[in-house]
Computed example of a mutant assay.
Amino acid sequence: MSYKNWLREHGVKHKKIVEKLLTQDLTQEKIIEYFDFENMKEKESDFCPLYAQNKKCHDMKELNCYLCSCPNFRFSDAGIQSIENKIQYSFCSIDSKDGRQGVYGEKIHQDCSRCQVPHTKEYVHKHFDLEWNKIMQICEIQK
Protein backbone atom coordinates (compact mmCIF):
# COMPACT_ATOMS: atom_id res chain seq x y z
CA MET A 1 0.00 0.00 0.00
CA SER A 2 1.33 3.44 -0.85
CA TYR A 3 1.90 6.07 1.82
CA LYS A 4 -0.80 8.25 0.26
CA ASN A 5 -3.37 5.44 0.30
CA TRP A 6 -2.53 4.56 3.90
CA LEU A 7 -2.86 8.19 4.94
CA ARG A 8 -6.27 8.49 3.25
CA GLU A 9 -7.61 5.20 4.66
CA HIS A 10 -6.31 5.90 8.14
CA GLY A 11 -7.82 9.39 8.06
CA VAL A 12 -11.25 7.87 7.41
CA LYS A 13 -10.90 5.49 10.39
CA HIS A 14 -9.65 8.30 12.63
CA LYS A 15 -12.48 10.64 11.64
CA LYS A 16 -15.11 7.99 12.35
CA ILE A 17 -13.81 7.53 15.90
CA VAL A 18 -13.55 11.27 16.58
CA GLU A 19 -17.09 11.84 15.28
CA LYS A 20 -18.36 9.12 17.63
CA LEU A 21 -16.55 10.73 20.56
CA LEU A 22 -17.95 14.17 19.71
CA THR A 23 -21.50 12.80 19.96
CA GLN A 24 -20.60 11.94 23.57
CA ASP A 25 -19.61 15.58 24.22
CA LEU A 26 -16.08 14.61 25.18
CA THR A 27 -13.57 17.37 25.80
CA GLN A 28 -10.27 17.58 23.92
CA GLU A 29 -8.55 16.07 26.95
CA LYS A 30 -10.98 13.12 27.07
CA ILE A 31 -10.62 12.53 23.32
CA ILE A 32 -6.84 12.38 23.68
CA GLU A 33 -7.18 10.03 26.66
CA TYR A 34 -9.51 7.79 24.64
CA PHE A 35 -6.67 7.23 22.14
CA ASP A 36 -4.49 5.63 24.83
CA PHE A 37 -3.11 2.33 23.47
CA GLU A 38 -4.74 0.14 26.12
CA ASN A 39 -8.15 1.73 25.60
CA MET A 40 -7.93 1.68 21.81
CA LYS A 41 -6.83 -1.96 21.80
CA GLU A 42 -9.98 -2.85 23.72
CA LYS A 43 -12.55 -0.53 22.13
CA GLU A 44 -11.26 0.10 18.58
CA SER A 45 -9.58 -3.17 17.64
CA ASP A 46 -9.83 -2.45 13.89
CA PHE A 47 -7.91 0.83 14.16
CA CYS A 48 -4.49 -0.83 14.15
CA PRO A 49 -3.43 -4.34 13.11
CA LEU A 50 -0.98 -4.44 16.04
CA TYR A 51 -3.84 -4.32 18.56
CA ALA A 52 -4.75 -7.95 17.78
CA GLN A 53 -1.19 -8.95 18.72
CA ASN A 54 -1.19 -6.77 21.86
CA LYS A 55 1.91 -5.16 20.37
CA LYS A 56 2.90 -1.51 20.43
CA CYS A 57 4.53 0.16 17.43
CA HIS A 58 6.91 1.97 19.79
CA ASP A 59 8.46 0.69 23.01
CA MET A 60 7.02 3.12 25.54
CA LYS A 61 4.93 2.80 28.67
CA GLU A 62 2.19 5.30 27.81
CA LEU A 63 1.60 5.20 24.06
CA ASN A 64 -1.01 7.57 22.68
CA CYS A 65 -2.40 6.58 19.28
CA TYR A 66 -4.11 9.87 18.36
CA LEU A 67 -1.51 10.81 15.76
CA CYS A 68 -0.62 7.22 14.74
CA SER A 69 1.67 8.85 12.23
CA CYS A 70 3.95 11.78 12.73
CA PRO A 71 3.48 15.31 11.39
CA ASN A 72 7.27 15.34 10.94
CA PHE A 73 7.20 12.39 8.52
CA ARG A 74 7.64 13.42 4.88
CA PHE A 75 7.03 11.17 1.90
CA SER A 76 6.58 10.97 -1.84
CA ASP A 77 5.25 7.77 -3.39
CA ALA A 78 7.05 8.78 -6.58
CA GLY A 79 10.37 9.06 -4.75
CA ILE A 80 12.20 12.08 -3.37
CA GLN A 81 15.74 11.59 -4.59
CA SER A 82 18.23 9.00 -5.77
CA ILE A 83 21.07 8.06 -3.47
CA GLU A 84 23.69 5.60 -4.68
CA ASN A 85 21.33 3.83 -7.12
CA LYS A 86 18.57 3.70 -4.50
CA ILE A 87 15.42 5.80 -4.30
CA GLN A 88 14.48 7.58 -1.09
CA TYR A 89 10.71 7.68 -0.42
CA SER A 90 10.50 9.20 3.05
CA PHE A 91 12.41 11.07 5.75
CA CYS A 92 12.00 12.88 9.08
CA SER A 93 11.68 16.65 8.73
CA ILE A 94 13.21 17.25 12.18
CA ASP A 95 15.92 14.61 11.71
CA SER A 96 15.01 12.96 15.02
CA LYS A 97 18.01 11.42 16.75
CA ASP A 98 15.92 8.29 17.29
CA GLY A 99 14.97 7.88 13.63
CA ARG A 100 17.05 6.39 10.86
CA GLN A 101 16.95 5.73 7.15
CA GLY A 102 16.27 2.07 6.42
CA VAL A 103 17.54 0.53 3.18
CA TYR A 104 15.29 -2.17 1.77
CA GLY A 105 16.74 -3.47 -1.47
CA GLU A 106 16.84 -0.44 -3.74
CA LYS A 107 14.44 1.61 -1.62
CA ILE A 108 15.13 3.94 1.28
CA HIS A 109 12.39 4.62 3.84
CA GLN A 110 12.35 6.46 7.14
CA ASP A 111 12.37 4.07 10.09
CA CYS A 112 10.62 5.76 13.01
CA SER A 113 10.31 2.68 15.22
CA ARG A 114 12.68 4.01 17.91
CA CYS A 115 11.14 7.50 18.00
CA GLN A 116 8.44 8.33 20.54
CA VAL A 117 7.89 12.00 19.63
CA PRO A 118 4.30 11.92 18.29
CA HIS A 119 2.98 9.39 20.80
CA THR A 120 3.10 11.37 24.02
CA LYS A 121 0.03 13.22 25.31
CA GLU A 122 2.08 16.42 25.49
CA TYR A 123 2.92 16.27 21.79
CA VAL A 124 -0.67 15.43 20.85
CA HIS A 125 -1.90 18.42 22.89
CA LYS A 126 0.57 20.70 21.11
CA HIS A 127 -0.53 19.58 17.63
CA PHE A 128 -4.16 18.69 18.34
CA ASP A 129 -6.86 19.19 15.77
CA LEU A 130 -10.13 17.28 15.54
CA GLU A 131 -9.31 16.86 11.85
CA TRP A 132 -6.38 14.43 11.78
CA ASN A 133 -6.02 15.06 8.04
CA LYS A 134 -5.30 18.75 8.72
CA ILE A 135 -2.40 17.79 10.98
CA MET A 136 -1.04 15.29 8.48
CA GLN A 137 -1.52 17.27 5.25
CA ILE A 138 2.05 18.57 5.41
CA CYS A 139 3.50 15.05 5.18
CA GLU A 140 3.10 14.45 1.45
CA ILE A 141 5.73 16.15 -0.67
CA GLN A 142 4.17 17.58 -3.80
CA LYS A 143 6.43 17.55 -6.84
Rank of each mutant, 00 (worst) to 15 (best):
D95V: 02
C57L: 08
M60F: 12
M60W: 11
V124I: 13
S69P: 08
M60A: 12
N72D: 13
L63P: 05
F73N: 07
G79R: 12
P118R: 00
K55A: 11
R100M: 13
V117G: 02
N64S: 12
F73V: 10
Y51R: 15
F91A: 00
V124T: 03
S76D: 15
E62I: 10
V103D: 06
N85Y: 05
I94D: 09
H109W: 01
P71K: 08
Q53I: 10
C57H: 11
K86M: 08
H58I: 14
N64Q: 07
R74K: 15
E84C: 09
H58M: 12
E106D: 14
D59F: 14
T120S: 03
D77W: 09
Q116G: 04
F128W: 04
K97D: 13
D59G: 05
E84M: 09
I87D: 04
C115P: 00
C70V: 06
K107G: 02
F73K: 13
P118E: 00
S90R: 05
R114D: 07
C115H: 00
M60S: 11
R100H: 09
V103L: 04
A52M: 10
K61P: 13
C65K: 07
N85E: 10
D111C: 00
F73C: 03
V117N: 02
F91S: 02
S90A: 07
D77R: 09
V117C: 01
H125P: 00
I83L: 07
G102T: 11
K86W: 03
D59H: 08
K86D: 06
E106I: 09
F128P: 02
H127Y: 12
R74N: 05
E62R: 10
L67Q: 03
D111T: 03
I94K: 15
Y89E: 06
F128C: 08
F91P: 04
Q81H: 06
G79M: 10
H58F: 12
C115V: 01
H109Q: 02
H58L: 06
N85V: 04
K107V: 02
C70Y: 03
S96C: 15
H119S: 07
I94N: 13
I80K: 07
K107D: 07
D111Q: 10
L67I: 00
D59S: 14
G79I: 06
R114M: 14
Q110R: 12
D111V: 06
